[in-house]
């Protein structure tokens, strides 16, 4: 397979996953803040959204004030924001077009439908239907695309590279969500923590990563700091957890069997070491310095992605 095609497939997976997470996080944060127990300023929620996506700086370059309308538009439909959901869906289609001969007709058509439905989405419609409706469409379409990926593609390098992109991006997005929410909570006046205020924050964290329901069933307890972090970081059986996704990333890298250098510099070694670290670390060891731990994890994932892109997917 040409490296250029491989590159398109890898980014196809990453952008599908990224659009979904940005949409869901924005929806959950914004909608749940509407009746939050702790009367946070709206700005608190809007900043949390911009921070998770990592676009605060870009936002303030275009807008002087933080308003609901501006932030929601900037995150969703703004064509001038290269990290908006609209732009991200454009990249999904571009990458799919570049790898058209390696994916199925079904997947290509589903991507096209998604793209066209988003292209026709107007600001007025966003305003009338609200962010909930918009994000719901993105999440549903994302599920359709992943359904096509799983049900219509051969289990060859094309499929593996898309999956590699999806799972690597999911580990990144979940880590970003965790870092953002832990920092959000640290900003709250300690006197007000505990009870419903903190409970609310852990609930939105879990919902923002589509994990609330499964967390409750697993722990049979209300969400708290420890079980929320443990569930999303270390649970080997839960498909949103970082541990689960890093394990899939490692397996995909082994299956693709890149002709790699051996030893501690190889992609296989990097991916295996990172997955192993998550497999054999407990929440007790990390919870005191969780943002540092997660930030260093993000660095390692990025190093791995760069290695992959520069060594095997460069053209």
């Amino acid at each position: 397979m040409l490296s250029r095609i491989g590159n398109s497939l890898f980014w196809l997976g990453r952008y599908i996953e990224r659009a979904e997470h940005i949409a869901r996080y924005t929806k959950v944060q914004y909608v749940s803040s509407l009746d939050a127990p702790y009367a946070q300023g709206r700005e608190f929620v809007l900043e949390s959204i911009l921070d998770m996506i990592g676009i605060s700086y870009q936002y303030y370059a275009s807008y002087s004030q933080l308003t609901d309308e501006d932030v929601l538009f900037f995150v969703t439909l703004d064509e001038n924001n290269p990290l908006s959901i609209h732009s991200t869906i454009g990249y999904i289609r571009e990458n799919a077009r570049g790898a058209r001969d390696s994916i199925s007709l079904e997947l290509w058509e589903a991507i096209n439908r998604f793209y066209h439905s988003m292209n026709n989405y107007t600001v007025v419609k966003l305003h009338n239907e609200g962010i909930h409706e918009f994000s719901q469409k993105v999440e549903e379409n994302s599920s359709v695309l992943k359904g096509c990926i799983d049900n219509t593609l051969m289990r060859n390098e094309a499929w593996m590279l898309i999956c590699l992109g999806i799972h690597m991006e999911r580990a990144i997005q979940v880590a970003r969500i965790l870092i953002t929410k832990v920092k959000d909570i640290e900003k709250i006046d300690p006197a007000k923590l505990g009870g419903p205020v903190e409970n609310y924050q852990w609930t939105t964290l879990l919902k923002g990563a589509e994990s609330f329901d499964m967390n409750k069933r697993h722990y049979k307890a209300n969400p708290n700091r420890r079980n929320s972090l443990e569930f999303l970081m270390f649970n080997q059986a839960f498909p949103k957890s970082i541990a689960y996704n890093l394990d899939v990333v490692h397996k995909n890298i082994q299956q693709i069997a890149f002709h790699d250098e051996k030893g501690s510099n190889s992609l296989d070694f990097m991916a295996g070491k990172l997955a192993g670290q998550f497999k054999y670390t407990t929440i007790e060891e990390t919870e005191k310095q969780v943002t540092e731990f997660l930030t260093s994890t993000l660095d390692k994932i990025n190093q791995m992605a760069n290695k992959l892109l520069e060594k095997h997917l460069i053209y």
Partner: peptide, 16 residues
């Protein structure tokens, strides 16, 4: 951009 020449042979860049 998928092709390059090395010692007068043409190669394509693949993932392998």
């Amino acid at each position: 951009r998928d092709l390059f020449v090395d010692k007068n042979f043409v190669y394509m860049k693949t993932i392998y």
